[in-house]
Design a protein around this nucleic acid. Sequence first.
DNA 1: AATGACATCAACCGCCGGTGG
DNA 2: TCCACCGGCGGTTGATGTCAT
Length: 302
Amino acid sequence: MDMAHERDSSSEEEVMAGDLRRGPWTVEEDILLVNYIAAHGEGRWNSLARSAGLKRTGKSCRLRWLNYLRPDLRRGSITPQEQLLILELHSRWGNRWSKIAQHLPGRTDNEIKNYWRTRVQKHAKQLKCDVNSQQFKDVMRYLWMPRLVERIQAAATADAVQAAADTPLSWQHGADDALYESPELPVDACWPAEYAAVAGGQLPNASVAELSSTTTAGSSSPSTTEWFTTACDASSAAATICDTDQLIQQQAPSQPAGAWTSEPLPSLGFPELGVADFEMGSFDVDSIWSMDDLWNTQPQFV
DNA sequence: AATGACATCAACCGCCGGTGG
DNA sequence: TCCACCGGCGGTTGATGTCAT
C-alpha cells in the first residue's frame, strides 16, 4: 500500500468515525460551499472544506463544485455538435476525459465520461466489438460521424427557418447577457426554489444560473445558427477527414461571465449554444445510432 | 397499476504526479 | 533526498429515474 493509499484510507477512517459526511449533498451543504467560494475563491480544498464548516473531504468539495455547482456549467443533453467533437477527440486522445472536456465548455470530464460509457460503449456492445477496436473506430468515423453531421445540418436548416419566422425580441437586446449580469434579477430566477428558500437571500447573485440539474435553461441564441453553419461546413469536410482542429480553432470563446468566480473562465473554442440545442425536438439523438441504419449502410462492419 | 429491466449520472475510490518544507 | 500534503485523473458504483411489459 503506497502513501497515497494510506492517506486516502485515513480520510476513510474519518468518515467511518463520523467526522466526515459522504453520499449525496444536501442543499444546505451546497449553499455553504457556494457562499464560501463566492467569498474566498477556489483552491486549498481541504482547508476550504474545514473553513466553510463542511464535514466533507476536500476532494468531495472540489468534485461537487466542479461537476455540479460551478456557475458556468452547461446543462442538458449532449448536443450533436458536442457528440461529434467527443467522438473525434476520443479517437485522438482516448479516455483523456479532462482533456476532451477542455474543448467542450461547460461540460465536465465526468459528464463526457458518462456519456461515452452509457451511449457509445453501449453501441459497441450491441455491435459485439471492442470499443477500442479498429472496426468500431471505423464505424464511428465513417458512419456515425457523417451521420451526425447530416443531423446537424438538418437541424441547422430547420433552426434557420424557425429563427427567421420568430426571432425573439429578447435576443435582439442581449437578454441572455442580462441573465448573468443583472443585479436586479431575483435569486430564485436562477436558483431552484428549494435553494432560494433555504438560503434566505444568502445566495450569491444571479450569476449562478442553472444550478440545479433539474433546471432547464433559457432560450436559443442567434449565434447558434451561425455556428451551425460554420460547424457543418467544417464538419462536412470532417466527415471524411474529421478535422476537428479547424472546428475548435474557428470558434471564438463565448462564455457567460460568472461575476463572482475567482477563476478565469477557460479559453475554449466552442460557442455558447442555447437550450434549443439540448431540446432537439424532432431531433432524435438516439436514432443516429439506429442499428437498422447500420445494417443497411455498412453490413460489412458486423 | 405493478414491477422488472435498463439508462443515467452524482459521487466515491484508488492511484499518480507535483510541490514545498 | 525524503516525506507529507494536495489536486487531478480515470474507473467504478449505487441511487434514482424512465421505459417496457
